[in-house]
Structure formats: C-alpha cells, structure tokens
Computed example of a mutant assay.
Amino acid sequence: MRRVIVVNGPNLGRLGVREPDVYGHQDLASLRAKCQAWGRDLGLEVDVRQSDDEGEVIGWMHQAVDEATPVVMNPAAFTHYSYGLADAAAQVSDAGLPLMEVHISNPAARESFRRLSVISPVATGTITGMGFFGYRLALEAVAHCLEEDRK
C-alpha cells in the first residue's frame, strides 16, 4: 500500500466546535476515520495529521519530500499568507509527488482575505467547498496521479 499524508492546518483540530455552519458538525476523529477508510478503498495507507504550528506543518512537507510521500493538505489559515509553507509545499511538487490542496468550505465564497491562496500555485490540484467529501476526491486524485506515473 502506498502511503499518503493528509495534513491539516490551524484550527482544524476544532472541527465540530468551530463554525459548524461552515465546517459541519463532524470532528477531526471522524475525518481521520473517513480518510483512512477511503484510502483503504483506493489501496492507500493514509496518515491524517493536524497542527496549529506552522513550523510543524512545514516539517511534514520536508518529511514528505524526503520519504517520497504524496500529500493531501488543508492548509487552513496558512493558505493565505504562509510563504514558508508555500516554499515547502513547492518542494513536494518539484519532487514529482502529488500535492492536493483541499478546503472544506469554498474560500472564494467567503471573506475577501480568504480568496488568495499561496499554496494553489504549487499544488497539483485544488478541491474546495465539498466538505469532508473533498478529502475523498483529493485521495482519488492522488491515486490517479500515482497510477498515471506507473504507465
């Protein structure tokens, strides 16, 4: 089974509590279980992580490059301003690894400051506004990219 990391940025540890009208009522444990089940269906071993610490998230990108591990990332608030994370994420793409950016809500339909992503330009693809199902789509995209690489 090919390993994939699903990285979640700040405040996503508060899923189910923080703005449930935007992010839903399910928590991070539910997201973890869903991602792992979806991954198994796709032949992927999924490791779901969350941190409010920008440096830790950057470290996970470095680890992904060093271990040749594809990434699904919801950078959350780091999306809009973290050039350090964007540089680290670019290393994932530059290594030829799939990097799927995912957002539970649709940032383009929210406050104006949320409309800029410094991650999208370096991501393989971006999925927004599909709730937790967006993670499934992102995992399917990773599986597709890995299959294409085998051809």
Rank of each mutant, 00 (worst) to 15 (best):
S82K: 02
K34C: 13
I127K: 04
G125F: 03
L85R: 03
A109P: 00
S30R: 12
V92T: 05
R114P: 03
L42S: 10
L44E: 01
V65G: 07
S117Y: 09
P70M: 06
W60L: 12
R3M: 10
A109K: 15
A143W: 02
V46L: 03
G129P: 07
G13F: 00
V71R: 07
G9S: 04
V71A: 07
D149P: 00
M100F: 07
L31H: 07
L146T: 06
Q63R: 14
V92E: 10
W60Q: 10
H62S: 10
L28T: 03
S30K: 04
S82T: 05
E140D: 12
S30H: 15
D94L: 14
F78G: 01
A33I: 03
V72A: 03
A33L: 11
R18L: 12
W38M: 06
A64K: 03
G13Q: 00
N106P: 02
L12I: 01
A89K: 02
Q63K: 12
Y81N: 14
Q91K: 14
G59A: 11
V102N: 07
K151P: 03
G55T: 11
A143Y: 02
R150A: 15
L12Y: 04
T79D: 06
Y135I: 05
F113I: 09
L44A: 01
Q26I: 00
L116N: 14
L85P: 04
D87P: 05
V118Q: 04
V92D: 02
G59K: 03
F133V: 12
R18M: 02
V71I: 08
I119H: 05
E67V: 05
V65T: 11
N106I: 04
A29L: 12
R150E: 15
T69E: 12
Y135K: 10
Y83D: 06
L139T: 07
S93C: 05
E19M: 13
Y23C: 08
G24N: 04
D21E: 15
L12E: 02
D87C: 09
V122K: 09
L97E: 04
V48C: 08
D47H: 13
L42R: 11
L42Q: 11
S93D: 01
P121D: 10
V46Y: 02
G129S: 08
R40I: 09
V92P: 02
Y81E: 07
A109I: 00
F133Q: 14
E148C: 13
V71W: 00
R150H: 13
G134M: 04
R49A: 07
P98F: 03
H62D: 15
D41Q: 15
A33M: 07
S30N: 14
M100H: 03
I119W: 01
C145M: 14
S93V: 00
A141P: 01
E148D: 13
S82F: 02
V46T: 06
G84V: 04
L85F: 09
C35K: 00
A109W: 00
Q63G: 12
Q36P: 10
L137E: 13
Q26S: 14
Y23Q: 08
E67S: 13
Q91G: 15
E101G: 08
A86H: 08
D53Y: 06
P70H: 01
Y23N: 09
D41L: 11
A86D: 02
R3W: 02
